[in-house]
Design a protein around this nucleic acid. Structure first.
Length: 714
RNA sequence: GCCCGGGUGGCGAAAUGGUUAUACGCACGCGCCUUAAGAGCGCGCGCCGCAAGGCAUGAGAGUUCGAGUCUCUCCCCGGGCACCA
């Protein structure tokens, strides 16, 4: 019988779903393990191989945990509300609501075909009213807590998406979604007060077991600066405050620089210590919305200040530094802490999102929609395209915006902006464990048992977007008493980027890999194992078409081995190789070093082929392979009369007694160069090693490394 | 400019409490099988050399009996942040 992945994979996927193999028993689970992966934006033509790379890596971890006795909960869903999905719908000329249904079908079919152990009963889609009802509820809680507020401000405006964006989505002056230039516009918008949590968001990072680069990115983004605020009197009355991290350079101040448009430009300030006159310049190197939008110019100690001073013919004084505290005292400065982090701009002038559940009344100002009236349904309108007027398309839908004030019952106007996509995804992991509940946003009992998330795997591109927002929302919910933890993700691991033959995959280059083709040709097991074999999971991988065959051969050899004649009875000869591999694979999976785990299994396979394995040996091997190639191992497990599903079988445990060697390779070196390698009994002393090495002459010096080598310096 | 990763065979990559560099896979070569091709199986495969041997982990220096691994200087590639005072 030939290995036929197409046949067995479909068969098992169906059976696993029918048997609810991957549904945890929420009520009586003894060792809950929440294995989370970032849910995809279903915006493109279908599941990208990059999604599959991430999902497979996360799934292998979860499958191993399940076999190690944990009650693993591995949910999935679609982050289908928002600009990305809307932009895609517009591109192909579809209505976003109609396109969502098409994408949903396609994505779920593909996600089923990759063989992950998803808990399908608990999926969520952010665009379903049953879900976004609670996204709106969340907004209202934030408003009630004083964490949602309106303000008129210079905001980021994407000239292509025709909406405002948060600072995090406009990094580097480019739209996070479409890459277009972002300009500044003065608009009144809804904000979330994430800055209230700046200190906590920063401090808690220290205790989190997260990929270090993500923690660093968050620290940089929060950008805490400790310094001082110093007041400069103006010559013709009034005063001006600056923020500095270097009050000790106060004696070197020769000018003041302020942001463009500042009312202080052109005035003369007075040095608080020396009384010297300091010109005030407007320059563009001073950022308008940071600190006090004014800096003291110290050409002697700051490069930018020096460059500015030289360009404007200002005297560059080399005044001495003062001790920090003395400087503060002399100039009357007071210690201040500033953050780079800005409040989270929530409003979007787009159609495809949850309407912000607020009503504006001329008399009563802004009022939240009563919770009994949630959800505020997004009406199906023909004209959903952004207009670029600074208003959402909903602003021209009279039946939508006409409302009555919940407070006074008078005529009022409903908010017509929708909320940011990142609000949808800031709390989805709370919903999963009881995804169908209709009475509450998330079930308190299940939250208690299953959260915080035990393992979260996703891309590093969300270092300062989704991961920061989720932490903030969780902290806010904690302070409102809804959850009893502050941090949603105990462990987070960033996976690397999958590239194709050294280049980034992109549609314009035409090198985007469609996983379906490979699954059709070689099966999901081959593709999964291949993706994980490329390179360390955290590093990313370089996909090469011709290399896929190597894994396909490997799985075929596994198939042939099991179908061949296995030896009856017991055979101890392979125990050493088997137990060494159990240890290696177990440890490598824990470290997400899947590439070397697979390599170790390839070596073991060769030993099994060369030896005389019994059924138990092969079953152990299959268990190790099961997280990587779940279908073929399940099929072969059945052929060997394995009990139940292999994926619920007990993970093998290595026994140190089989691994211990009684011999080692003694490396014999002369002047540090290897001359010979001989077998020697473990634990021998230097004298014995010298005798075994049998090197002529009297060495000047002998270096002996226990159980490893002997080096003669002559 | 600053902050993270990286630089090892023809290619993807192993090996970092210092001590046999190149595991595993791909490609390639030879052989077996086959009418043939492919698949499969076996063997070989860092570079130079007939060999003995020598040389090799981006470049250069240092520490050490011994460095891919530690220290310093520099170069290159990928990613992120950038007038944040």
């Amino acid at each position: 019988m030939k290995y036929n992945p197409q046949k067995i994979e479909k068969k098992w996927q169906k059976k696993w779903t029918v048997d609810k193999l991957y549904e945890p028993d929420f009520a009586s689970a003894k060792k809950p393990f929440y294995n989370l992966m970032m849910f995809p934006y279903p915006s493109a033509e279908g599941l990208h191989v990059g999604n599959m790379y991430a999902f497979t890596g996360a799934d292998i971890y979860g499958r191993a945990k399940r076999m190690q006795g944990h009650d693993v909960f591995e949910p999935i869903g679609l982050d289908g509300f928002g600009i990305h999905s809307e932009n895609y719908a517009m591109k192909i000329g579809a209505h976003p609501a109609a396109q969502a249904k098409v994408s949903e079908k396609r994505f779920y079919k593909q996600m089923d075909s990759i063989g992950n152990g998803f808990a399908w009963d608990e999926k969520v889609e952010t665009y379903n009213p049953e879900y976004y009802k609670w996204t709106q509820w969340l907004f209202i809680q934030m408003f009630k807590k004083g964490l949602a507020y309106r303000k008129k401000a210079e905001v980021n405006w994407c000239t292509s998406c025709l909406t405002v964006l948060s600072d995090e989505q406009a990094e580097g002056g480019k739209c996070e979604r479409c890459g277009s230039a972002v300009i500044k516009k003065e608009l009144e918008q809804w904000f979330f007060k994430i800055t209230d949590y700046a200190e906590k968001l920063l401090k808690n990072l220290d205790a989190l077991d997260w990929s270090e680069k993500v923690k660093i990115a968050q620290r940089n983004w929060i950008g805490k600066s400790e310094g001082a605020e110093i007041t400069f009197k103006l010559k013709d009355g009034g005063e001006l405050k600056v923020f500095t991290t270097r009050p000790d350079t106060i004696m070197g101040v020769t000018f003041i620089a302020v942001a463009h448009g500042s009312i202080y430009a052109g005035k003369i300030a007075v040095h608080p210590v020396t009384g010297a006159e300091l010109p005030v310049y407007a320059t563009d190197y001073v950022v308008a919305d940071y600190g006090t939008a004014a800096v003291m110019g110290v050409p002697a100690h700051d490069e930018r200040d020096r460059a500015f001073a030289e360009a404007h013919g200002i005297y560059v004084s080399d005044a001495p530094l003062l001790p920090y505290d003395e400087a503060l005292k002399k100039c009357g400065g007071k210690k201040e802490t500033r953050f780079r982090l800005r409040d989270w701009l929530i409003s979007r002038q787009r159609y495809w999102g949850p309407p912000i559940p607020m009503i504006h009344c001329e008399k009563c100002d802004w009022q939240p929609v009563p919770e009994s009236e949630l959800p505020v349904l997004l009406p199906r309108v023909k004209n959903f395209r952004p207009e670029g007027t600074g208003k959402s398309p909903l602003a021209s839908v009279k039946s939508f915006y006409e409302a009555t004030c919940p407070q006074c019952g008078g005529k009022a106007r409903r908010e017509t902006d929708v909320s940011d996509t990142f609000l949808d995804s800031s709390w989805y992991f709370l919903r999963y464990p009881d995804a169908c509940t209709t009475e509450v946003p998330f079930s308190p009992e299940r939250i208690k048992d299953w959260l915080p998330v035990d393992m979260y795997i996703g891309g590093a591109e969300h270092s300062v977007l989704h991961l920061l927002y989720s932490r903030f929302v969780t902290m806010a919910l904690h302070d409102m008493g809804y959850v009893d933890f502050e941090e949603p993700f105990t462990v987070f691991r960033a996976h690397g980027l999958l590239i194709k033959e050294g280049a980034k995959m992109s549609k314009s280059k035409g090198n985007v890999i469609n996983p379906d083709e490979y699954i059709e040709r070689y099966g999901a097991d081959t593709l999964r194992t291949y993706l994980m074999f490329l390179a360390p999971f955290s590093q990313g991988g370089d996909f090469r078409d011709e290399s896929v065959m190597g894994i396909y051969r490997f799985l075929n050899r596994v198939w042939v081995l099991v179908l061949g004649n296995l030896t009856a009875g017991s055979n101890g000869a392979l125990q050493k190789a088997i137990h060494k591999t159990i240890k290696k694979v177990t440890e490598d999976i824990a470290d997400l070093k899947y590439n070397t785990a697979i390599s170790a299994m390839m070596i073991l396979l060769r030993e099994l082929e060369a030896g005389e394995p019994v059924a138990e040996d092969v079953k152990t091997f299959l268990k190790l392979l099961a997280p990587f190639a779940p279908h073929i191992t399940e099929e072969l497990w059945g052929m060997l009369n394995g009990e139940g599903s292999i994926h619920k079988s007990a993970w093998p445990v290595w026994d140190a007694k089989f691994i211990e060697e009684d011999e080692f390779d003694l490396v014999i070196q002369i002047n540090g160069k290897t001359k010979r390698v001989i077998k020697a009994p473990k634990g021998i002393d230097e004298a014995e090693a010298v005798r075994l090495a049998a090197v002529d002459g009297a060495p000047k010096r002998v270096i002996f490394v226990h159980n490893r080598l002997i080096n003669f310096i002559i």
